[in-house]
Amino acid sequence: MVSDQIKETEQLEDIREIVEKIGSTRADLIPVLQEITNKFGYISQLAIKELSDLMSLPTKEILSVATFYRMLSTQPRGEHIIQFCESAPCHVVGGREVFSALQDALGLEPGQTSADNKWTLLTTSCLGVCGIGPVILVDTDMYGNVTSDQVKNILSRYD
């Protein structure tokens, strides 16, 4: 209980710092939310409430933005976030097989986080590097021309 409160206080301090750094106008909301996602892994209700005060925005508006963009999350996520492009250019060059290999290796459905909190598996519409599909993005590491037998090897780099 006490440690929860300390955590909350620390989180609030960090949020205040982020807003101070980026700005508190309406236009700053997306960068602020992005920064909070980066820092805490997700945007908690506590964060929304605090941002509502700091930026004079209704909580519903912050929630709308936070749930609209795939790069933001209102749910806790794993230590590593794997994004897999499911769009046509990756799909037609073998993406589907790579994705099943990923799912098998992780035992996760899209959107799920592993029980040990290590992995979150997400699908995405495009990562902007269609020329080297299929593409996997782990955190900020991009892997192109991936084949299914490479999947395990890629994952093992994060052990």
Partner: peptide
Amino acid sequence: RFVWGVSER
């Protein structure tokens, strides 16, 4: 009062 909003997409 800004109670209602749209979540998700």
